[in-house]
Amino acid sequence: MSLKQRLTDDMKAAMKSGDKDSLGVIRLVNAAIKQKEVDERIQLDDAQVLAVLDKMVKQRKDSVSQYETANRQDLADVERAEIAVIERYLPAKLGEAEIVAAIDAAIAETGAAGAADMGKLMAVLKPKLAGQADMGQVSALVKKKLAG
């Protein structure tokens, strides 16, 4: 079952069960997916849907930090609840050892040797690790690998 179909089925289940919190977040996700499809005039596949979900989680994490800075714990809690619902649709996060293994494989594949090859390396890694790893962490690990 595709990710979009799973979202639709879960939305229907949330409607039937009266789970208003999950329903609202799933509707936001579906709207974001639909917006991207309309803007780019394409049908999103699972990898592209994961990218949308990843972006939504990142936006909410940014909001949580801003709300906490402003001492608005109530709003931060709402954002955290939305993150929890969105993360149900993301694949399990990879550990650092698995990320390093993927980086090593990408280095072997691209022949990257120094910091100048970082862009080429990240272009290979991003589609492989989308939704499974924090790309900021991946970037830091790549820099470390290429430097040393």
Score class of each variant (00 low, 15 high):
Leu129Glu: 14
Val124Cys: 08
Gln132Glu: 15
Leu121Lys: 01
Ala123His: 10
Ala133His: 10
Ala108Thr: 05
Tyr89His: 08
Leu125Lys: 11
Gly111His: 12
Met118Asn: 10
Arg88Cys: 03
Leu129Asn: 09
Lys126Arg: 15
Gln132Thr: 05
Lys128Thr: 08
Leu90Ile: 01
Glu98Tyr: 03
Leu121Cys: 00
Leu94Ser: 09
Glu96Ser: 13
Ala115Trp: 14
Ala130Val: 14
Ala133Gln: 13
Leu94Ile: 01
Gly114Gln: 14
Leu90Cys: 08
Lys93Leu: 01
Asp117Tyr: 04
Pro127Phe: 08
Ile103Met: 06
Met122Ile: 13
Ala115Ser: 05
Pro127Asp: 05
Leu129Pro: 12
Met118Lys: 15
Gln132Leu: 01
Gly114Ala: 12
Ala106Gly: 11
Ile99Phe: 03
Leu121Arg: 02
Ala113Glu: 15
Ile99Met: 13
Leu129Asp: 12
Ala116Thr: 12
Met118Leu: 12
Ala92Asp: 04
Ala92Leu: 03
Ala133Tyr: 08
Gly95Glu: 15
Ala101Asp: 13
Lys93Cys: 00
Ala123Lys: 11
Gln132Ile: 00
Ala92Tyr: 02
Ala108Tyr: 01
Ala102Phe: 00
Leu90Val: 01
Asp104Gln: 08
Glu96Ile: 13
Lys93Thr: 00
Val100Thr: 13
Pro127Tyr: 08
Thr110Ile: 02
Met122Gly: 09
Leu121Gly: 03
Ala130His: 06
Glu109Gly: 11
Ala106Val: 07
Ala92His: 04
Gly114Arg: 14
Ala97Val: 14
Ala105Asn: 09
Asp117Phe: 01
Ala92Lys: 04
Ile103Tyr: 05
Asp117His: 04
Leu94Thr: 02
Ala123Trp: 02
Pro127Asn: 10
Pro91Asn: 05
Thr110Val: 02
Ala130Asp: 06
Ala123Gln: 14
Thr110Met: 03
Glu109Val: 08
Ala92Gly: 02
Leu94Met: 11
Gly95Pro: 14
Leu90Asp: 10
Glu109Ile: 04
Leu94Gln: 03
Met122Pro: 07
Leu125Asp: 14
Gly119Ile: 02
Glu98Ser: 10
Ala102Arg: 01
Gly114Phe: 11
Ile103Arg: 14
Lys120Asn: 09
Val100Gly: 04
Ile103Gly: 14
Ala112Arg: 12
Ala115Ile: 04
Ala108Cys: 06
Asp117Ala: 07
Lys126Met: 03
Ala116Met: 14
Lys93Ile: 00
Gln132Pro: 06
Pro127Ser: 13
Arg88Leu: 06
Ala123Cys: 06
Leu121Pro: 00
Ala116Tyr: 12
Ala108Asp: 13
Ile103Trp: 02
Ala106Tyr: 03
Lys126Asn: 09
Ala116Glu: 15
Ala130Pro: 00
Leu129Gly: 10
Lys120Asp: 09
Ala108Ile: 00
Gly111Ala: 07
Gly119Lys: 08
Leu94Phe: 03
Ala123Val: 08
Met118Val: 00
Arg88His: 07
Gly119Cys: 04
Leu90Phe: 02
Leu94Val: 01
Met118Ser: 13
Gly111Met: 11
Ala105Ile: 01
Leu125Met: 10
Ala130Trp: 01
Ala101Gln: 13
Arg88Thr: 02
Val124Lys: 04
Leu125Trp: 07
Pro127Arg: 13
Lys126Ile: 04
Leu125Val: 05
Gln132Cys: 03
Gly131Ser: 09
Gly114Thr: 12
Ala101Thr: 09
Val100Trp: 00
Ala108Trp: 03
Ala112Asn: 13
Glu96Cys: 06
Ile103Leu: 06
Val100Asp: 11
Gln132Arg: 15
Asp104Cys: 01
Ala108Arg: 14
Ile107Trp: 06
